[in-house]
Write a protein that binds this DNA or RNA. Structure first.
Lengths: 107, 107
DNA sequence: TCATTATATCAATATATCTTGATATTGTTA
DNA sequence: TAACAATATCAAGATATATTGATATAATGA
């Protein structure tokens, strides 16, 4: 798909906007932390994270079995502007649950 | 729908991106001109123009039975940036057919 | 190597969006 | 008012996208 269309399609879904806002707010997160914090099913998360990554908003870093997703940097003008808009949205962010650090992870 | 989601959803469709690019390039156009130039069915055009209008990209001005659509101005930062992206897209623009002015309109 | 955990992908269904043709609305002119 | 042209809306089917549960892959440690 064309680059711009891929970017805006990625943004046109509530779940993905929430993910971007969450990761932008709390910083790099692994899938199991997102799963615990947002109470989302794992396959659903994986799908949306992939779409956001392929649209140029996220990057992944593997650390052992964990995959850490973070906001890709630097973002181009359009994506930065989009992220700025998302920062202003009235979203109820659930608190962060860092299972990957407290060793409670086993979902 | 939430404002930002409405904007990006409006942008995430090839037909609407083409419409924006067309109107941005050739200036204010009525539906029958778009119909002739883009060889699109009228109900389809009407639908997409409405979505773009409600997303804040277009405005309409009625002149008699004609409805002239143009880029809304001023656009906010995000929408301007989006339009700038669209201006850079490699789109094959069909030539403008100004039926509404030459009196050939009767579709 | 086997077992375990985290993540990714797949297949089926559910949901949303687009396209089309038909009909309704609005404005103009006779 | 009647007839017509331009545009908008509606309803049906077609297409795309999202969600879920099941399965596959990858990394780790015993």
């Amino acid at each position: 798909m064309e680059v711009f269309l891929k970017s805006v399609s990625a943004l046109s879904d509530e779940t993905r906007v929430l993910l971007l806002r969450f990761i932008d707010t709390y910083g790099e997160s692994c899938v199991c932390d997102l799963q615990a914090s947002l109470s989302m099913i794992q396959s659903r998360l994986s799908r949306h994270l992939k779409i956001l990554k392929e649209a140029g908003f996220l990057r992944v870093e593997r650390k052992g079995t964990w995959a850490y997703y973070s906001i890709r940097s630097p973002l181009d003008r359009f994506r930065s502007e989009a992220l700025a808009e998302i920062r202003c949205m009235p979203i109820e962010l659930p608190p962060l649950k860092k299972l990957s650090e407290t060793g409670e992870c086993k979902l």
